[in-house]
Amino acid sequence: MGGSSNTINPWPFLLPALLLCILFFLIPTVNMVILSLTTENGIGLDNFKLFFSTPHLTQALHRSITLAISATIMGSVVAWPLAYFIVFCVNKKWRPLFLLAILAPFWTSFTIRAFSWQLVLSDNGVIAWFIELITGMSVTLGILYTMNASIFGLALFCSMLTTFTLYGALVSIDTKLIEAASNLGAKPFNIFKDIIFPLGLPGWIAGIFLSFIVCVGDYAVPTLLGGGLKPVLAQIMLSILKGTYDLSQAATIAIILAMTVIMCGLPLIIYGMLRRKRVSV
């Protein structure tokens, strides 16, 4: 359309942000890859071989993945009834308020939230006290400092996150579609199966993806609720950098964690790309 005065030169606007990303994100990432491949005898995969032949580390990787997958699945299942309720059962005017009620604790410190669950779950915490009050027997819960406590803590976070992304997808569904289907005799279940679920899917999957990323890299919930005896990879990374300071090992673990995210995220990314193609066709 316009002459030269109308075209905007993007670089002055883009460069500061881009520079920050290159200096503090891209270069460190490349550096990390190089570090993980550097061994005493030059370039090689020795660090990775060492990682996979150390039971202590492979177990931690296994725990990280189990924890992230369990929490993500639980959170994503809970998100459906919550988002569904807010979008389809609440007056339009009040929807944001109901969403805020679910999201509010989300805005406070991750660490503080994990800690507050200690007060509830511990052997002399609120639940144990409540059971004792009702039954008159003192019980040892044995929940705190277990894998299950970690899964629970992270699942709670995932459900909030996925509710948020799913809400965004559900709220933008054109209500005329639903009315039309209903006028033509569709049953509630079929409306859900054929309209609401497919249209909510992108938001749901985005939530699942983000949940997994947060869970697999989290150290706070596994430390405060899961305890330090059976660490996940993120906890080991934290202790390496503040303890033994084996930098190439830290880099190797970081790369393995990144690969895990990419591998678990790949099906979702491919799905997203296929979907986009289908929509554009």
Binding site: M237, A258, V261, G265
Partner: peptide
């Protein structure tokens, strides 16, 4: 979309 701990460790 990157675990924060990776950004931190990279830096």
């Amino acid at each position: 979309v990157i675990p924060m701990i990776l950004i931190g460790i990279g830096m």
